[in-house]
Design a protein around this nucleic acid. Sequence first.
DNA 1: TTGTAGGCGTTATCAT
DNA 2: ATGATAACGCCTACAA
Lengths: 346, 346
Amino acid sequence: MTAPRRARPSKPATIKDVARALGISISTVSRAMRGFPEVNNETRQAVLRTAEELDYQPNQVALSLVTKHTHSIGVIVPNLDYFFATAVRGIDELAIEAGYTVLTCQSNESYGREITNTQRLVNSRVDGLIVSISSATSSLDHFRRLLQREVPMVFFDRVNADLEANKVMLHNYDGAVQAVSHLIEQGCRRIAYLAGPASLSISNQRKEGYLGTLRQHGLPVSDDFIVHCEFDREHAYRATLRLLDGAERPDAIFTVSDRIAIGALLALRERGVRVPDDIALVGFNDEPVASLLTPSLSSVAQPAFEMGRIAAQLFVEQMNSDEIRPYQTVVLKPTLMVRESSLRRR
Amino acid sequence: MTAPRRARPSKPATIKDVARALGISISTVSRAMRGFPEVNNETRQAVLRTAEELDYQPNQVALSLVTKHTHSIGVIVPNLDYFFATAVRGIDELAIEAGYTVLTCQSNESYGREITNTQRLVNSRVDGLIVSISSATSSLDHFRRLLQREVPMVFFDRVNADLEANKVMLHNYDGAVQAVSHLIEQGCRRIAYLAGPASLSISNQRKEGYLGTLRQHGLPVSDDFIVHCEFDREHAYRATLRLLDGAERPDAIFTVSDRIAIGALLALRERGVRVPDDIALVGFNDEPVASLLTPSLSSVAQPAFEMGRIAAQLFVEQMNSDEIRPYQTVVLKPTLMVRESSLRRR
DNA sequence: TTGTAGGCGTTATCAT
DNA sequence: ATGATAACGCCTACAA
């Protein structure tokens, strides 16, 4: 009785193995593999056949060491919720077309993890980075260092104004304007804003849009109507309860994301507040869940997939041009999806 | 007027730069950096300081070429929906603890993309792969080749019985048993199964559980009550309409996933079928959306995060042991979450 | 304790 | 048309 044995593992064939098998030099193999015109046709055939037989695949690691390119893009996102998963698909799609492999890491909304991810990816010599900044990120030095080295970088969605780099983002201000204008049209006058972490550009840009719209319509603004909370259903739930227990009760809530809107909805349900009659509600992101809620949730849609594609597009362009090009900021248009949660029958 | 100029990009420092700056050899630097005991303390200090100043980070690509290890795991998933995103987080978490970087690729349920992803990751010399098989995958040769080379591989969720490798999966049969038994308890007798693609193990294992339970209760089984469709709301919607228009109408539907259950729910709503009174409904995966639907959706929960962690655990164990170990299959327990969609008031 | 030389798999340069 | 050789950045003998 012999011990169970698996097929003997064979190390991957190298260019040397192919050369030796044919009794020729590795340079010829290299040239044949890459389709250089100068190599004799019969030689080429022989090389290709032997490579096939030996299942020879060029070692990308060795190649990268020489060329300084890995044909890979490191992507760092705070999480993989619906929005980011969709954006990553967009990045992925264009990247593949352009011959790049996408390596996705999650920072988990952690500053430390973001730094670790950044460093590991860079040390693994990805050709560059596409990043959406974590909500906990307090300093941008880890990115600045790379930008200084001209490592190609594109930021998307959660960008920072101080960073000189290519960016793709939503016109967050306009998204808020659409949402709040709509609520005002529906007769709402005391509109609250359930914001995300104060550190995030998207939180604040949407806040500006919210404030601007209120002012434009001559509506009062109050700090009590602006509540910050984490991107998390539970936090949103509690924040909403605080809002309901405040001195003045709002007649509408605009939230920075659908996930937060859901937390709000649960709180409202529990308190027996009718939506939209007592309090109208508008979310942000237009996740598929929005249309499935009862009442269905009005939400500001953003083109996540396209945002990803464009980010990858900018990245590839930056890679391919050796001249120094000015940084671009692409701003995408939001679209308000009106549903039951904000439609008042009059 | 001069053209705008950015700070001059500096190439990353190499071990040579550090050595040269100190007038010592690179081997000493190498040893000092890695904390070898034999190196003189003053030398070590000097090296560390200079490395810091020059911002020297070892080039992982060069390192990999020597060591044959990249300390990275390639993960291939069909998509990044809630289940897979959660599982990837689980993989990520354990991998980071163990010092690995996770590179996630989506096959987009495409056989070709799965092959491409596999090849690219392997050519980039990831240390191994953690895979959930795409629904379109028709041959497993691309994986078999790697297994033969003893490339560490772990399959999860969508596994294949013919593959000799480590696996983590749900007890799908039991999940179906729980769901169907529950429906029978609720008085349902004509229970239909809305299955996913027939090529998938999870579809079929759940089908076996469904059939087994019906037989055990002496309930008739009928092919008309088993409908396959893509993992997609739209397909599920149409499949449900077909089901409703069949000769005999079911009084319950068990679905292979929540996404499909949602498609079914929309079809039922549109036809004015009351859930659960006319037709009870049970989904699979227990996505967060399940509890938010109206009626809230009963669903078989699976520990996605834990599944990911265990997959990574198996991977790391396989990496760290040089003896040939038998392949393991870890089977996790499902839990039925009962909600309104299947609870009949009697 | 430190330095030298060879090698990892590939490409590029210069010969032949 | 093909081959030899240096180089990429690092590690691991082995030598000093």
